[in-house]
Design a protein around this nucleic acid. Structure first.
Lengths: 237, 237
DNA sequence: ACCTTACGTCAACACCATTGACGTGTAAAC
DNA sequence: GTTTACACGTCAATGGTGTTGACGTAAGGT
């Protein structure tokens, strides 16, 4: 059968489905995002997506070779959304920080989709743009190439990993989420000082700190460490 | 049907299956871990697990209410395994580093279970032990409580987030995983210098670095930043 | 107005988790 | 020993999943 999918650029015949929808790659991705936002990550199946589009499920295979390809398209859409309107200030620490926080925030606003795509390399447009920008920030700041690459890698993976992690926690069914928050008080708040002295000594601080994501502070630590490396290797402003 | 599952303690009638196996909760968990380790993450299905055990798939429902319960049991086994045999050296950096790398490595060796378990707070024995240990390392090292708690939080979330992320990537079907590695060469290796100068300039470094996890270096950065904070606030050993 | 063919549709396949009914063989009770 | 109750392994069925090959229709270029 050689190839069922026609690349988006060379599409010409657009035929409406029985129910009147005119499909396109963009429409499918948008619908998928909407579906996931409304009904959770588990709601994303070829059949349900077909139904939401008003088309036969198998019609999707004219646009994406398989569900994995669709998933990558969704993931890339998210990366794009995270960068929309971002501009550089010229201060590498400020720029990297805002980039990281944007990615984190954007993924959290589509938790269910984030879970599906955060660990993928899409190689698509929005992704390559982000890579180029981050590398640019680091190299312009005076990091030597080898170091810039390592920091880029740590930075990106950390942003995505925290995003996925926090998104996953956020997309638990509400009942389960409350239950997990309660575990902190029910279990950790009651550990006796003789078996768990350190937890007992710091419990109020712990309970307060664990309510929010650890990402902002982790990001700050990473930026500080990077700064230390930069002034040691290069000699920069 | 009220409850199909009989709690492990009160089991009494043990009947061998047609193929002669005598089931138990422990045997099922062990077999599942072996299955995942040998044949990859997607080899873990109720049907295949049943086959591996020499039993009808539905027999598993006598031991676990559903697959999620089974996976949690597996995940719990993992937390324990990560800490088995760990001992403190007394040097906080060494201890924190080994703790982080152990968690990461252990989760990666059973990706499927890691993905499901990494973002949950279980409040179970192995978990509280880990929390106590890490807090202990930091406080004994001279970090003031408020700082120790913040660093603990960042450290744990980072370890789990990276573990989950890398585990997820690892549990892709092999075909998709190879393809993803190939994307680096097929896409990023071919980006022209005029549109993506920074990627083009560093591509060989990038391609080499992205093959491995970014966690070890990210962890190192975090430890360095923590050290800097420690010597500034307290006055260190 | 014709022809080609893109693409939406249909039907089918193989797999998945889960459940209700069933009967066997085990272990306890006597 | 013999009886008896029920634990639990098995079977069959349900409704879900991704994916593919065949088919025909209508859209677009000519």
């Amino acid at each position: 059968m050689s190839e069922r999918v026609v690349p988006e650029g060379s599409r010409q015949r657009r035929r409406p489905t029985k129910q009147g929808a005119v499909l396109s790659e963009q429409l499918i991705v948008d619908t998928a995002l909407r579906l996931v936002a409304q009904h959770g990550a588990d709601a994303l199946s070829v059949r349900r997506l077909g139904a939401a589009l008003g088309a036969d499920p198998s019609a999707l295979y004219r646009y994406f070779r398989n569900t994995d390809a669709l998933l990558l398209a969704i993931a890339d859409e998210l990366i794009g959304k995270a960068q929309d309107g971002w501009t550089a200030t010229g201060d590498w620490r400020t720029d990297l920080r805002s980039m990281g926080l944007r990615i984190h925030a954007c993924y959290l606003s589509h938790p269910q989709a984030a879970v599906l795509g955060a660990y993928r390399t899409t190689g698509r447009l929005h992704e390559t743009r982000a890579v180029e920008r981050i590398l640019g920030i680091l190299r312009t700041a005076g990091f030597p190439d080898a170091l810039a690459v390592r920091i880029y890698h740590a930075f990106v993976d950390q942003a995505l990993a925290f995003a996925a992690q926090d998104a996953a926690a956020l997309s638990l069914p509400p009942a389960a989420r409350e239950k997990e928050a309660a575990v902190w008080y029910a279990v950790y708040g009651k550990l006796p000082a003789d078996t768990h002295p350190h937890i007992a000594a710091t419990f109020p601080l712990l309970a307060a700190d664990m309510r929010d994501s650890g990402y902002p502070f982790a990001l700050e630590l990473m930026l500080s460490a990077a700064e230390a490396l930069r002034t040691r290797t290069g000699e920069g402003s």
